[in-house]
């Protein structure tokens, strides 16, 4: 998912509406963007830097599951009940991101079903990419190459 991808198919008015629901944020190395189980009220479009998704494993601390980078969309738990993060997220190095307010996104989608449909399609594309990558990792290809 790229910023271009997120805005694909949107009219100028719709893009402006999305941008009004967003603000820019900077994170320092090690800053935690959100915690597992916390309320999912935002999503992030990473502009620069890397974010590690993690979960807590007893005895191992925060174990990283996946890292996201520039152009990636972070967070979709805000779209589906119970609106809780499944994993935590930590900035790796300095991170620059556009942060979207989930409540405002949902209002925009309710008011304009076309926009809601397009946004849902874009999020589904992100979910699909992540699923495919996870499936590829499950194959454990390098242990048999």
């Amino acid at each position: 998912m790229t910023s271009a991808g997120l805005f694909d198919g949107l009219t100028a008015t719709e893009r402006e509406a999305l941008l009004r629901a967003s603000h820019e944020e900077f994170y320092e190395d090690g800053d935690r963007l959100f915690e597992e189980g916390g309320h999912a009220g935002y999503c992030w479009l990473i502009r620069n830097g890397r974010v590690a998704l993690d979960t807590t494993v007893p005895g191992r601390g925060h174990v990283v599951i996946q890292t996201l980078g520039a152009g990636d969309l972070l967070g979709w738990s805000w779209l589906i009940p119970p609106y809780r993060w499944h994993f935590g997220a930590r900035a790796v190095g300095t991170v620059e991101a556009t942060v979207f307010d989930a409540a405002q996104l949902k209002v925009l989608a309710d008011q304009d079903p076309r926009l809601g449909y397009l946004l849902t399609q874009q999020l589904l594309a992100v979910v699909l990419d992540r699923l495919q990558s996870t499936r590829a990792r499950l194959l454990d290809l390098y242990s048999h190459d």
Partner: peptide, 9 residues
């Protein structure tokens, strides 16, 4: 502290 994910990412 590097990237975690498949090369496609």
């Amino acid at each position: 502290d590097g990237t975690v994910g498949f090369v496609t990412e």
